[in-house]
Design a protein around this nucleic acid. Structure first.
Lengths: 258, 258
DNA sequence: CCTGCACCTTGACGAACATCAATCGATCAA
DNA sequence: TTGATCGATTGATGTTCGTCAAGGTGCAGG
């Protein structure tokens, strides 16, 4: 494992607060592993023995029932996943699958739990990370239950636009079928949703989306800081906890009215 | 505040592991408050200064957007809520409203955070609670995205039946309009969903629901341990963390196959 | 170059769901 | 008791969404 990889793990808010000594203990038995695209890292219901840290590539978290399946999240580096199952020493509720060739750092769940009980700084950092993940899911459920498919897409595009630098053009980071599952619709309906956004100045050509009438798009989308986290990319932070803290700060500064 | 109330707070998994000294510090500036039915305790977007512990009554957590609103959870004693916002010192993403006259114990968020940084046992307990809440939301999203309205209702009924003692009759714990919002549908559609379950042996009379052909209902509902947490009531545990640990143990013992 | 394949798109249709309006039943105060 | 109110239900109707089938497009391999 390269030293720069370990630096990137160290820089995560989850680990940046702990002492070098504790960090060495946490990563003692850990290892880096490479997976090709399309590999199932973890099947829902499997026991979870490791905390995963995605260092390179893309990972999809999905759930299935009967013959249906859906995507709960798509992760990009640097992200941790299945932390909740590790903390509770429980089985995973989601499957994890690589969408691209990926590098993943794996830390022993047992060591994580033991270290949490010994080091309150680390346990606090885990709590902050989990709280951030929790709030991400709250946003996701609200989006799913309160918005139609077109509205979810419109807000997704606005959020991506900000994350990609607030230009009038963005690139979709993964296949449209994956995006459809993430937004809770079929690929067919995603196509139709894009088509209906054309009248709001949205043009799609392959994976690039351009906006010509942002005002019209926002009037339809009505983004809300209580659903959409519009943290821009310059904040080089890669944790749900930190991004939630950012969102709260902004909401207070702006004085968001209900 | 009665001493028995404090005992009930102390018995929560969130607090049961800490020393008496730390518990005294946590509850030092805390106080008990009574609210009538229909009181809004917290509006989404408000800053959260307290951790709430519901000791008596019923509380609904809801979210709104444009002119729509939905229910994310209905809490019964003894439950904590808005822990995630407290940990991150962030604004709440959900509104909290009493459905019945309620007694609520309120602990200073600042003290919670400070104690977490000092006491790793408490910080670990917070992590376990948050991890349990997180997994509850994962279950909720999967149910919402993978199931139809009738399927969600059928599984809700089966879960309630187990929680209420596995008899052939249950009592709905709150108004049907609230249940409808929780299940992600309109009251009208909930009525129709109940009507369509009649052919599966489900009879509704006011708030009581009786099951005459459980086999037929389960064939339709297809409950899954990866979505539905069927923890029975005899486990007198009142935390999401503990109930998730229970669910995992059972899934392993049964050897759930995908 | 063609062929096959994967991904996306489009159209047609039906299922699931929301909305609007009317009605019924239970509760409660006058 | 009467009238009013609230919650639940039912029917009619339209929207949203999923499913099935048929193209279309880009790309890799023969």
């Amino acid at each position: 494992m390269r030293d720069t990889d370990l630096q990137r793990v160290r820089a995560l808010p989850l680990f940046s607060g702990v002492s070098s000594d504790v960090f060495r203990r946490l990563t003692g038995g850990a290892f880096l592993q490479r997976f090709p695209a399309g590999t199932t890292l973890l099947l829902e219901g499997d026991r979870v023995d490791f905390l995963y840290v995605l260092l390179d590539g893309t990972v999809e978290l999905q759930g299935a029932w009967k013959d249906r399946e859906t995507t709960l999240a798509v992760l990009r580096p640097v992200s941790t996943f299945i932390l909740a199952a590790v903390v509770l020493d429980a089985d995973g509720l989601m499957s994890a699958r690589t969408l691209q060739r990926s590098e993943i750092f794996m830390l022993s769940g047992e060591v994580i739990r033991r270290t949490m009980k010994e080091d309150s700084d680390f346990a606090f950092a885990v709590s902050q990370e989990l709280a951030g993940c929790y709030r991400g899911l709250v946003r996701s459920i609200k989006s799913q239950k309160l918005r139609t498919g077109v509205e979810r897409l419109a807000n997704y595009l606005i959020t991506q636009r900000i994350r990609q630098g607030a230009e009038d053009k963005i690139t979709l980071q993964y296949e449209k079928r994956v995006l459809a599952a993430l937004l809770g619709m079929t690929p067919e309906n995603l196509s139709r949703a894009f088509a209906s956004l054309a009248s709001h100045g949205v043009t799609v050509r392959g994976p690039t989306v351009t906006f010509s009438r942002l005002e019209a798009l926002e009037r339809l989308a009505r983004p809300s800081p209580l659903i959409d986290n519009h943290m821009p990319p310059q904040n080089r932070i890669t944790s749900k906890g930190e991004s939630e803290r950012w969102a709260s700060e902004v909401a207070r500064a702006v004085g968001y009215a209900h």
